[in-house]
Computed example of a mutant assay.
Amino acid sequence: MVANNTGPKIQQEKATVSVMIYLYCHQNHHTPRNQLCNECHDLLNYAMARLTMCRFGEHKTTCERCPKHCYRKDYKQKIKQVMRYAGPRMIIHHPIMAFRHIYKNLLSK
């Protein structure tokens, strides 16, 4: 069965990942704000597709706590790099989104 997740929790996850990728790309690849390099654009599209097809849907935990990692190895390495960089900076650039993500991560222990 193919999932097509469009619920509010998945949309929030998509927004969080998107902001993290844009932040990472802007500060590391020196792209203009609201633009992505080809590599980051590819990663964003991949992440959105994975979230749309997530088997857990609206019951999804954060990716860090997910029992089934669905990213291919190369994309998994890229998204980890993005999250390591952007995660701590989210508190400054997008504090509400950052605290929501931290809270969700704590709840899914």
Rank of each mutant, 00 (worst) to 15 (best):
M1H: 08
V2P: 15
V2T: 13
V2Q: 15
N5M: 02
N5K: 11
P8N: 13
P8R: 14
P8K: 15
K9R: 12
K9V: 14
K9E: 14
K9I: 11
K9C: 06
I10P: 04
I10T: 08
Q11Y: 00
Q12T: 11
Q12G: 03
K14S: 04
K14W: 00
K14D: 01
K14C: 05
T16C: 06
T16L: 13
T16W: 05
S18H: 03
V19Q: 12
M20S: 06
I21R: 02
I21K: 00
I21C: 03
L23Q: 06
L23D: 05
H26I: 05
Q27C: 08
Q27P: 06
N28M: 10
N28V: 03
H29M: 02
T31G: 01
T31L: 01
T31Y: 01
P32E: 08
R33T: 10
N34K: 07
N34I: 03
Q35A: 11
Q35D: 12
L36E: 03
C37T: 07
N38F: 09
N38R: 11
E39H: 06
C40A: 10
C40Y: 04
C40L: 07
D42E: 12
L43I: 04
L44Y: 02
N45K: 13
N45G: 09
N45F: 03
M48V: 09
A49I: 08
R50K: 15
T52F: 04
C54G: 09
C54P: 04
R55F: 04
R55C: 06
F56N: 07
F56Y: 15
G57C: 05
G57K: 05
G57M: 03
K60S: 15
T61A: 12
T62R: 02
T62I: 00
T62C: 12
C63A: 00
C63H: 01
E64V: 08
R65H: 14
P67D: 00
K68F: 11
K68P: 01
K68C: 08
K68T: 10
C70A: 09
C70Q: 09
C70S: 13
Y71Q: 02
Y71K: 01
K73V: 11
D74H: 13
D74Q: 11
Y75G: 05
Y75Q: 15
Y75K: 14
K76F: 12
K78R: 09
K78H: 01
K78E: 07
I79R: 04
I79W: 05
I79Q: 01
K80R: 15
K80F: 13
V82W: 02
V82F: 00
V82M: 00
V82A: 00
M83P: 00
R84S: 14
R84E: 12
R84H: 14
R84C: 11
Y85A: 02
Y85I: 00
A86L: 02
A86R: 00
G87R: 05
G87Y: 02
G87N: 01
R89E: 11
M90V: 02
I91Q: 05
I91S: 05
I91H: 09
H93Y: 09
H93W: 13
H93V: 09
H94S: 04
H94E: 15
I96A: 10
I96S: 10
I96E: 12
I96Y: 10
A98D: 09
A98F: 08
F99N: 04
R100D: 08
R100E: 06
R100G: 07
H101E: 08
L106E: 07
L107P: 01
S108F: 05
S108C: 10
